[in-house]
Structure formats: structure tokens, C-alpha cells
């Protein structure tokens, strides 16, 4: 008797890891052919993808809607400057340490904000981000209210520096995306999906809800730390009001909601869409944010799952994490 099979992904999914590897190879060889300008643009887009992916991991899989993740972007950025300039570490090693430092900071902070739930958790994370900013401003070694410049690259030529930043961004995004996929395919990922679908039921089934959430919170904080240090590398300057800005949260939420919360591909799509939107609308000043707000509301109300599931009708999964049952009678041929 032919039994149903349970496989990951859908449709022509299994050919796609190769496609993915190709994209990575192309991205890795691009700096040779593209001008410096485009490398900078790519770095911007990579940072957006990184931010969207991390926020989605937190909210879409962990069920933790935060509007305070700029705390870790800021900590990551300042940590990079501190490790690279003040402790004189190699900037790439400093990036690694900045990420780990963010993860370490996230552990005690999680015990604080996890006391709040739902919407109050969201504001709570924001307040924590504000407090961290207020403390950072008090530290004169980090430049106080006016911020601090990153000097580690000052010996390098502009092109070399930009290529270095580009490479860091490529490496970071590959590592982060792969770890996200692996994380979601692990036992933890399964538990997270169960939690997201029904918190209480998952708890009853033995998913350690609190512990899983804490792990996600910490892992995501590391991701934001990497993003923060990339931002510092590409801007060469860290200013408290910018790096701790709640606008980061607004942008991340926009990208994830537009693309598709709780999918891996959606936030990437959202980040790319946002990248082009901001490029087009930047000149319109405040109107641009108003338009983004309206688009977000319309999307939430009319396509709550976002664009990715809408476009692909759940048939295509670039990064197979979901299981599905293939029945031999119906679509076993696929």
C-alpha cells in the first residue's frame, strides 16, 4: 500500500537550494564588476533584509512583537566602535564581538521585558531602548549626545573600505539566513511554530514556551547587533538619536507586514520592495512615511498574510522549513 509522504517545502522547492547558492556566488563576485556606488546600495539593501529577517523571527515565529529592537542595533553599533577603536581589535573580529555582546545584553533584558505581554511588551521594549539611549548619552567615552566616529577604517582607501563593508554584509547575511533556516528546521523551530499557532496548547504539549522565547530573543538580539555594526561600518559614524531611533522599528514592521509575516521569504521580499519605495519616495519628505503608513494599514486589513503568500499561493518555498503531506492519490506526482 502506498502511504502518504511527509516532505518539507512544496512544488519545485528542492531545486532551489542550488538557485540560492548561485545567488550567493553572484553576490560574491559582483564587487568586481559593479561600481562602488552599487556596492553601497547593495549594503543598504542587505541591512534591510537583515533587519526584516530578524524582526520576523522575533514576531512571526517567536510571537514577540517588539518596537524596541533598535536597542540592539544601537548597542551593536556602539560596541563595534568600542571594540575596534578603543580596544583596537580588527573591525571584523569587533563585529563578531559586537553581536555576541548584544546577545549577552539580551539575557538580563529579557527577564525584564518578558514580564509584560502583548501590546505592553511592545511599548516595554521601546522604553528599554530609550533608557539604553539615555544611558549611552551619559557616557562621554562614547561621544555623549553628539555621537562618535568609527576610525578603524581610516587607514584604508575608500574603494577598499567599501568592498570590505560589502563583503562583511554578504557574509553576515548568508550566515544569518542560513542560521535562520536551520533554526526553523530544528526542534526549536517546530516548537516556535507550535507556540505561534497556539501558545497554551504548545505549553501543554511540553514546549517550554518561556525558554524558547528567551532563546529567540537572544539570538535575534545578536542578529540586530550584527546589523547595527554593519550600519556603523557603512555610515562611519554613530549618533544616539539616529541609531536608537524608533523609525527602525517602523521600517522593520513595514517590511515584514508587506512581505509576509511568519514566512522566511516574505520579509526579504518586503525589504526589497521597501528599498525601492524609499528610493522613489525619499524626496517627498514626510509624505513618504504617511504613504508607507497607509500602505501598511491597507495590507494588514486586506492581505493580512502579506504579499509573498499572496503571490505564490503557498506553492513555492525558497527556503523549505515547513512540512507538508503529499497524498499519493492526489498530487503524489509532484
Amino acid at each position: 500500500m502506498i502511504k502518504e509522504r511527509i516532505v518539507r517545502g512544496a512544488g519545485f522547492t528542492r531545486a532551489l537550494p542550488i538557485f540560492f547558492v548561485l545567488i550567493v556566488l553572484v553576490l560574491a563576485t559582483l564587487p568586481k564588476y559593479l561600481g562602488v556606488m552599487y556596492q553601497v546600495k547593495f549594503v543598504q539593501a542587505f541591512i534591510l533584509i537583515l533587519l526584516a529577517t530578524m524582526w520576523n523571527l522575533l514576531a512571526g515565529f517567536g510571537g514577540l512583537v517588539s518596537i524596541g529592537q533598535q536597542a540592539f542595533i544601537g548597542i551593536g553599533a556602539y560596541a563595534l566602535v568600542y571594540f575596534a577603536d578603543i580596544l583596537n581589535l580588527n573591525p571584523f573580529v569587533a563585529t563578531l564581538f559586537a553581536g555576541i555582546f548584544c546577545g549577552l545584553c539580551a539575557i538580563p533584558l529579557s527577564f525584564l521585558v518578558f514580564r509584560l505581554a502583548g501590546g505592553y511588551f511592545a511599548i516595554g521594549t521601546w522604553v528599554v531602548a530609550e533608557i539604553i539611549k539615555l544611558f549611552t548619552v551619559q557616557i562621554s567615552a562614547l561621544g555623549g549626545g553628539s555621537g562618535i566616529s568609527l576610525a578603524a577604517f581610516s587607514g584604508m582607501g575608500r574603494e577598499t573600505r567599501i568592498a570590505a563593508v560589502y563583503w562583511s554584509a554578504v557574509v553576515t547575511i548568508v550566515v544569518v539566513l542560513l542560521s535562520t533556516i536551520l533554526l526553523m528546521r530544528s526542534r526549536l523551530g517546530l516548537g516556535l511554530t507550535a507556540m505561534r499557532d497556539d501558545n497554551v496548547a504548545a505549553g501543554v504539549l511540553g514546549v517550554k514556551v518561556m525558554r524558547y522565547r528567551r532563546i529567540v530573543f537572544v539570538v535575534v538580539a545578536m542578529g540586530f547587533g550584527f546589523a547595527g555594526s554593519l550600519i556603523a561600518m557603512s555610515n562611519l559614524r554613530v549618533q544616539p538619536d539616529d541609531i536608537f531611533s524608533v523609525n527602525y522599528s517602523a521600517i522593520m514592521i513595514f517590511m515584514v507586514v508587506i512581505g509576509g509575516l511568519g514566512t522566511i521569504e516574505g520579509p526579504i521580499l518586503g525589504a526589497i520592495l521597501y528599498y525601492f519605495l524609499q528610493d522613489r519616495l525619499r524626496d517627498y519628505g514626510a509624505w513618504y512615511l504617511i504613504v508607507l503608513g497607509i500602505i501598511a494599514i491597507v495590507t494588514v486589513l486586506t492581505a493580512p498574510k502579506g504579499l509573498w503568500p499572496l503571490i505564490t499561493r503557498d506553492r513555492i518555498s525558497l527556503f523549505p522549513t515547513k512540512y507538508r503531506v503529499i497524498s499519493p492519490t492526489k498530487d503524489g506526482a509532484r
Binding site: 514576531a59 502583548g118 514592521i253 494599514i297 494588514v300 493580512p304
Partner: peptide, 26 residues
Amino acid sequence: SLAMGVLSPLLITFAFSIIIQNVLLQ
């Protein structure tokens, strides 16, 4: 949005926040 889970109202009110701030700015 209330019928669509806990996330939707949060997103919508956050969007209100962004819209109001920027309209006032204009």
C-alpha cells in the same frame, strides 16, 4: 483588525502613530 488576531491592531495603531506624526509635521 480585532478579528484578525493580536498583531493586527498593534500594527494599525503603530501606523496611525507614524501617519499622525508626519501629517502634523507637514
